[in-house]
């Protein structure tokens, strides 16, 4: 399982978000890796799931990629819920 956290620049928000996604993955026992990058690079990087803010996910969603939008990327509850719905039950 590879999760890619994406933000506009790939150096600030996606890094912080990936810390929380990793925490959530651990708590939910999801095996895999989670890295972070910027929108432009993410378009050429393969991942099982892409996570980010709704604006960024809208631009990445081409109907083929599996995208997960987060409103509050610091809410561990919201991340866990999103991972559960999309990955564990998906």
């Amino acid at each position: 399982m590879k999760i890619l956290v994406v933000c506009g620049n790939g150096l600030g928000s996606s890094f912080m978000m990936s810390l929380n996604v990793q925490k959530a993955m651990k708590e939910l026992n999801i095996e895999g890796s989670c890295s972070h990058t910027d929108l432009a690079s993410s378009k050429s990087e393969q991942a099982d799931y892409y996570i980010g803010s709704p604006e960024i996910m809208d631009q990445l969603n081409d109907g083929k990629r599996k995208v997960i939008s987060l409103i509050n990327m610091f809410s561990l509850d919201e991340i866990k819920k999103a991972l559960t719905t999309h990955i564990l039950e998906g």
Binding site: N9, S53, N72
Partner: peptide, 23 residues
């Protein structure tokens, strides 16, 4: 400019924005 192009992704959570660009 980034916000105009990419939308308000700098609002990391309700109430809190972290404007930034690249080095």
């Amino acid at each position: 400019e980034n916000v105009k192009n990419l939308g308000p992704y700098i609002v990391l959570l309700p109430k809190f924005a972290m404007p930034h660009a690249r080095p």
